[in-house]
Structures are given as structure tokens and as C-alpha cells.
């Protein structure tokens, strides 16, 4: 891991990695969506609205996974002072916020025909909304912060990223701790309560969205590193 913390070494890997992550991700995503929409059966109780599962679950996974990534990057920045950790944290924030918003919106769209309401202030939905606001706060802090290292974020933003991670287990356990309209955990380490006839397209969309998310993060890291290079060069030119 330390070996790849060097921006020049990272860029050498990031260029082919962008392509390797993006195109297979897109392909898997399209296959998963097509199968989820047209091949897998409707649920006996929920009918066709169950098909929203194939985009809602990956969005929730990436919203929470994105913040976990920010927290790990923050830890690496604060403890080991990795030059790339702050860049990675910053690059993860916008796609993470985007997928959290998608999770909230698709959940709301799913809720209307299933529960009869667009929104309910229960544990799962409220903690997910809090995650979205945490992302907005982190993005604002990262943009406003004094830069430390190449294109990075300040220690304050990193600490915010670390402290905000407390919300991740709360989201995960919210359906167990509180009474909720949201269903309980249906996919756990011990197995799934969803029938395999409905479950398999989720593997495609979950992998596809994850690869695309990683490709977007790598692209944004490359952009931040290039911008840092431009800024450094401009400063040198201005000094003569």
C-alpha cells in the first residue's frame, strides 16, 4: 500500500486502471439492469416495484462504502501522512454523495407504491439522510480547507471524515434497533432471505456500480493531481 502512495507511481497505474474499471463496470451494470427489468420475475407481494432493488441496494452500498473509504483515507492521512490519502478522500466525496442521494430517491420512489408514503422519519431513512448531509459538510470543508499536500484536504476535514464514520454502523443496525417501515436485513453473512430467482441480477448491478464508482474516483483523483501540478507550475512561473 505504501508503495502506491507516491503520486507518480499511482498515475502510472491509474491510467490503464480507469479503462479496466470503467468499461467492465458499464457492461455489468447494463446486463444487470436489463436482467433486473426484463428477465427476473416480479415479486408475489410487491409486484414489479421489486425491480428497484437492483439499483437501490448498490446505491446504498456505495453511499456507505464511500464514507468508509473517506474514513480510511482520513486515518491514513492523519496517521501515516500518505500524500495520496487526502486526494483519495476528496475524490470519493462527490460520487459518494451522489449515490447516497440516489439511494434516498429510489427508496422514496419504491416506498410510495409499497408502503403508501414517499417518506417516513424512521431510523434507516433518517440515518441515510444524515449521511447525505455529512457528505455535503465534508465537501464544503474539503473545498474551503487550507490544502495540505497535493490537492488534499485539511486535518479538520480528515477528522470530520473519521468522526462521521460513526453513522455507518448506525445505518446498518437501524432496522434492528428501531421499529421501521424498512425491511430488516435481508442479505447477511449467513445468507439471504431473498429468493435466488430474484437475487442473481443484483450481483451484476452491485459489481457494475462498484467498478464504475471506483473508475469515477480514479478519474477525479487524476483530475485533482493534474490541477495541483498546474497550480504548482503557475506559481513557479509567476515567481519567474
Amino acid at each position: 500500500m505504501h508503495r502506491f502512495a507516491n503520486p507518480a507511481r499511482f498515475l502510472k497505474i491509474a491510467r490503464p486502471l480507469t479503462v479496466w474499471l470503467f468499461w467492465p463496470g458499464l457492461l455489468l451494470l447494463l446486463i444487470g439492469c436489463a436482467c433486473g427489468l426484463f428477465v427476473s420475475p416480479a415479486d408475489y407481494l410487491q409486484g414489479d416495484t421489486v425491480r428497484i432493488l437492483y439499483i437501490h441496494v448498490p446505491a446504498a452500498w456505495l453511499g456507505m462504502g464511500g464514507w468508509s473509504g473517506i474514513a480510511i483515507a482520513a486515518l491514513m492521512q492523519l496517521v501515516w501522512r500518505h500524500p495520496l490519502a487526502a486526494v483519495a478522500g476528496r475524490a470519493t466525496a462527490v460520487p459518494g454523495a451522489f449515490f447516497t442521494a440516489i439511494c434516498l430517491i429510489t427508496g422514496s420512489i419504491w416506498g410510495r407504491p409499497t408502503w403508501g408514503t414517499w417518506w417516513e422519519w424512521d431510523g434507516r431513512m433518517t440515518s441515510m439522510l444524515v449521511l447525505f448531509f455529512l457528505y455535503l459538510g465534508y465537501i464544503a470543508l474539503a473545498n474551503a480547507s487550507t490544502r495540505q499536500g497535493p490537492g488534499g484536504v485539511s486535518a479538520v476535514a480528515a477528522i470530520f471524515g473519521l468522526v462521521g464514520a460513526v453513522n455507518i454502523p448506525i445505518i446498518n443496525r437501524s432496522v434492528v434497533w428501531w421499529n421501521s417501515l424498512h425491511q430488516g436485513p435481508s442479505i447477511t453473512l449467513r445468507g439471504s432471505s431473498i429468493d435466488s430467482a430474484l437475487l442473481w441480477p443484483l450481483g451484476f448491478t452491485l459489481t457494475g456500480f462498484t467498478l464504475l464508482f471506483a473508475a469515477i474516483v480514479v478519474m477525479r483523483m487524476r483530475a485533482i493531481l493534474a490541477r495541483t501540478k498546474v497550480e504548482a507550475r503557475m506559481q513557479r512561473l509567476a515567481r519567474g
Partner: peptide
């Protein structure tokens, strides 16, 4: 129901 599904996927 398909209106909700298509809306969610399109978005």
C-alpha cells in the same frame, strides 16, 4: 407500478 420502476431507473 412500471411508472415508478422506469422513473427510478431513468434517474
Amino acid at each position: 407500478q412500471w411508472a415508478f420502476v422506469i422513473g427510478a431507473y431513468a434517474l
